[in-house]
Amino acid sequence: MQNVFLKEDCDQFINRINQLKSDSQPLWGKMSVDQMLAHCNVTYEMVFDDIHAKPNAFMRFLLKTLAKKAVVGDTPYSRNIKTAPQFIVKGDRDFDLEKNRLINYINKTQSLGESEFEGKESLSFGKLSSKEWNNMFAKHLDHHFSQFGV
């Protein structure tokens, strides 16, 4: 698995983003390319921007019990997995804006480094190790870039 804290790996993710075009079509799934980029940005918004509500205690318990291992573990995501409601993007988005936002988030994560994420609180899963943060970010990006053939 790639490491979002290494510049070389982040450069590879960014190269894949730069291969996308505003009319790129998915190999599976229902999202358009602009929606996919906005969808990928949600993961970073939950870390860096205070715009998403923290799930209540019961929902956090469910997420930690039922979803955490699949999200932060080593196993890649399968095609057509169910998307959590807060990650569903409807309507058209500005392709260039979403693309640039994602590149900036990737660069910010890499520049902050692994130590910034060790023990950092996740809105949904509580404290995560830097390895778990890496798995979540890297798996999600790879899954969706593969979805669009890049």
Rank of each mutant, 00 (worst) to 15 (best):
F5W: 13
T83P: 00
K30W: 02
Q2D: 14
A84W: 08
L102Q: 08
D49W: 06
Q19A: 08
M1S: 07
K7E: 15
V150G: 04
L63R: 05
G29L: 06
L66T: 09
K21W: 13
D96M: 14
E132N: 02
T75W: 01
F117M: 08
V71F: 11
G119V: 05
I17A: 03
M31E: 10
N107H: 02
G149R: 13
Q110I: 00
S115P: 03
M31N: 09
G73M: 03
C10P: 01
Q12K: 15
G149D: 08
L6T: 05
I103T: 04
S111F: 07
L102H: 09
K21G: 15
I106K: 11
K54N: 03
M46T: 11
H39S: 05
R101E: 08
Q19M: 08
I81H: 09
P76K: 01
I17G: 02
V72T: 05
K68P: 04
K127V: 12
D50T: 11
H144K: 01
N104C: 09
G126H: 11
Q25H: 03
K127R: 15
R16M: 13
D92P: 11
L97C: 03
N18P: 00
D96H: 13
I106D: 02
Y77F: 14
Q35D: 03
Q35V: 04
H144R: 04
L6A: 08
N135K: 00
E116D: 13
M36D: 02
G73L: 04
D9T: 07
D94M: 04
E98C: 07
F125C: 02
W28I: 03
F61Q: 10
T83K: 08
K131P: 00
E45S: 10
D74K: 15
K21N: 15
S111H: 12
I14E: 03
N15W: 13
K90G: 14
D92E: 12
F137Q: 08
F13Y: 14
R16Q: 14
R93Y: 13
H144P: 09
A67G: 01
